[in-house]
């Protein structure tokens, strides 16, 4: 359940980040505030981008920062940060980034379920676009709850498309 991982305590909307590092820092601080990581995990997420590049921008406008479990991850968890102004992460095609979803995994295997649910959610562009634009945390939380219930989305046509397996790029 997405609403299980992304609660009112794991979400921050409209953050003003001056650059990608500030965005990851803020995103990581949400994990830390929820006692999911040790502080050094945040530095490890930044190091990962410096070291391996901005490949964490997995889809246009969305980055998925993370580090290895042994870098200070305590439990499995997610945080969601949206940026007031998009920032460049250094990805040739998927920049600029508006949504930062950081995750931490306690080990190499148990986070699979969490990421699989996240992937399922992000696969529908409508959901990604919704997160990019949403301004109210309350609305976003009910969107997640509605999604988890398998409920109808706000737009009937889109929900119909997603049921029949067609792609929606609205």
């Amino acid at each position: 359940m997405i609403s299980e991982y992304l609660t009112k305590d794991n979400i921050n909307l409209g953050f003003k980040a001056e650059n990608w590092e500030a965005a990851i820092k803020k995103s990581g601080s949400i994990l830390e505030a929820n006692d999911l990581i040790e502080p050094e995990y945040i530095d490890a997420m930044i190091e990962m981008v410096k070291d391996k590049g901005a490949y964490i921008v997995i889809t246009p406008g969305l980055a998925l920062p993370h580090a290895r479990p042994e870098k200070g991850a305590k439990k499995n968890g997610l945080s969601l940060l949206t940026l007031k102004e998009p920032v460049e992460f250094g990805h040739s095609k998927n920049d600029p980034v508006k949504v930062v979803i950081s995750f931490c995994a306690a080990d190499d295997s148990t986070h699979t379920q969490m990421l699989s649910e996240l992937a399922e959610f992000l696969k529908d562009k409508k959901n990604v676009n919704y997160i990019k634009e949403v301004g109210s945390k309350k609305e976003l939380l009910s969107y997640f709850e509605n999604y988890d219930r398998g409920g109808e989305s706000n737009e009937d046509l889109d929900s119909m498309r997603s049921r029949t397996g067609q792609q929606s790029y609205s």
Binding site: K52, I56, T112, L115
Partner: peptide
């Protein structure tokens, strides 16, 4: 890069 997030 990490074999744990994006690749999964």
């Amino acid at each position: 890069g990490a074999g744990q997030g994006s690749s999964l």
